[in-house]
C-alpha cells in the first residue's frame, strides 16, 4: 500500500517536471547543435546537386531539339506565334464547352456509377437480374474503347432517325462519355464497398439495422470517403476525354483548333488546345494529391514515416 502510494506520487511529480522543462530552462545540448549543423550542410549540398542536374538536363534537351534537322520547319508549323494568337480566343471559347461537359457528365457519372455499384452488391434472389445487368454493363463499357462508343452513339443514334431523340452532338457525346465513365466509377465504388471490413457490417446488423440500413449508414459513407482519391483521378481523366466529343462536330476546344488547322495547315492551334487542357487538369491533379496526402496523414497519425 505504502509502496504504491509513493510510486504514484513520484510519477505525478515526474510528469509535472517533464512538462515544465519543455517550456523553460532548456538549452540545446552540444550534441543537438552538432547534429543540426550537419543536417543543414547536407540540405545545402542536396539543393546544389538538384540545381546543377536540372541545368544539365535542360541544356541537353534544348541542344537535341534545336540541332534536329527538321527543327526550323517544325518550329514554323507547331510553334507559330501568329497562329497561336489567332487560335487562342477561339480555342478558349471551345474550352468552355469542355468545362460544362465535365461538370454535367461528372455529376451524372457519380450518380449512375453509385447506382450500378449498389446494384452489384445487392443480395437476395429478387435482385438477381439487376446484379447480372449491372455486371454486364461494367464488363461491356469498360472493355469498349471510348472512341468507338462515341462513334456509335454520336453517329449511329442520329442515323436511326428516331422521333423525339436528340441529334445534338454535344448531348450525344456527353451521353457516351457518361456511359463509359459510369462503368469505371462503378468499379471504384464497388471496390470501396468491399474494402469496408465485414466486422462493420456485422456490428451494424447486430444492432438490428437491416441490410439496407447497414449499407446506407455504415458501409457507403466509409466506402465513399476511402475512394475519393481514385474518383478524382477518374474525373481528371474525364476532363481531358471531353475533347473527344469533337468527333461528332461539337465545337469544343479540339474542334475549334481543328477548324483553324484545316484552313491554314499549321498545327499550332493543337498545341494551344493541348496546353489549355493541361492547364485545366493541373489544379485538379494537385487537388487530388492534396486530398490523398491529407487522408494518408490522417491514417498514419503520429508516425514520422
Amino acid at each position: 500500500m505504502t509502496v504504491a502510494q509513493t510510486d504514484s506520487g513520484r510519477e505525478g511529480a515526474d510528469g509535472e517536471g517533464g512538462m515544465a522543462g519543455a517550456d523553460d530552462a532548456y538549452t540545446p545540448s552540444q550534441r543537438r547543435i552538432e547534429r543540426e549543423r550537419h543536417k543543414r550542410a547536407r540540405a545545402r549540398r542536396a539543393t546544389a546537386i538538384a540545381a546543377l542536374s536540372t541545368l544539365v538536363t535542360a541544356a541537353v534537351l534544348y541542344l537535341v531539339v534545336v540541332d534536329a534537322p527538321g527543327w526550323p520547319r517544325t518550329k514554323e508549323t507547331f510553334f507559330s506565334a501568329q497562329y497561336a494568337r489567332e487560335a487562342f480566343p477561339k480555342v478558349l471559347d471551345g474550352l468552355w464547352l469542355n468545362i460544362r461537359l465535365l461538370f454535367v457528365c461528372g455529376a451524372a457519372v457519380l450518380v449512375l456509377g453509385m447506382l450500378i455499384a449498389i446494384a452489384r452488391t445487392l443480395r437476395g434472389p429478387v435482385f438477381f437480374p439487376l446484379r447480372v445487368l449491372a455486371a454486364a454493363y461494367t464488363d461491356f463499357f469498360r472493355g469498349l474503347p471510348l472512341i468507338i462508343n462515341l462513334m456509335i452513339v454520336v453517329l449511329g443514334v442520329p442515323a436511326l432517325r428516331l422521333q423525339g431523340v436528340t441529334v445534338d452532338p454535344v448531348l450525344l457525346g456527353g451521353t457516351a462519355l457518361t456511359l463509359t465513365y459510369a462503368a469505371y466509377v462503378a468499379e471504384v465504388f464497388r471496390a470501396g464497398i468491399e474494402s469496408v471490413h465485414p466486422s462493420q457490417r456485422a456490428a451494424a446488423r447486430s444492432l438490428g439495422l437491416t441490410n439496407r440500413q447497414a449499407l446506407r449508414y455504415v458501409v457507403l459513407p466509409q466506402a465513399v470517403r476511402r475512394q475519393v482519391p481514385p474518383l478524382l483521378n477518374d474525373l481528371v481523366s474525364l476532363q481531358k476525354d471531353t475533347g473527344l466529343v469533337s468527333i461528332g462536330g461539337a465545337i469544343d476546344a479540339v474542334r475549334a483548333a481543328d477548324i483553324i488547322v484545316g484552313r491554314s495547315l499549321n498545327y499550332t492551334p493543337y498545341i494551344v488546345a493541348g496546353l489549355l487542357f493541361v492547364a485545366l487538369t493541373i489544379p485538379m491533379t494537385r487537388f487530388t494529391d492534396w486530398v490523398t496526402a491529407r487522408m494518408d496523414r490522417q491514417r498514419a497519425q503520429g508516425g514520422i514515416l
Binding site: 466486422s199 456485422a202 456490428a203 446488423r205 447486430s206 444492432l207 438490428g208 439495422l209 455504415v218
Partner: peptide, 28 residues
C-alpha cells in the same frame, strides 16, 4: 432483424463506426 434488435453484442475489436462520433455511434 427483429431478433437482433433484442440482442446486444460487444465485439473483441470494438467495431465502432469510425466515421461517426461517439454520440452518433450510440444513437444510430
Amino acid at each position: 432483424d427483429a431478433v437482433r434488435r433484442r440482442i446486444g453484442v460487444v465485439f473483441q475489436a470494438y467495431n465502432l463506426f469510425p466515421h461517426m462520433t461517439v454520440l452518433e455511434n450510440i444513437t444510430l
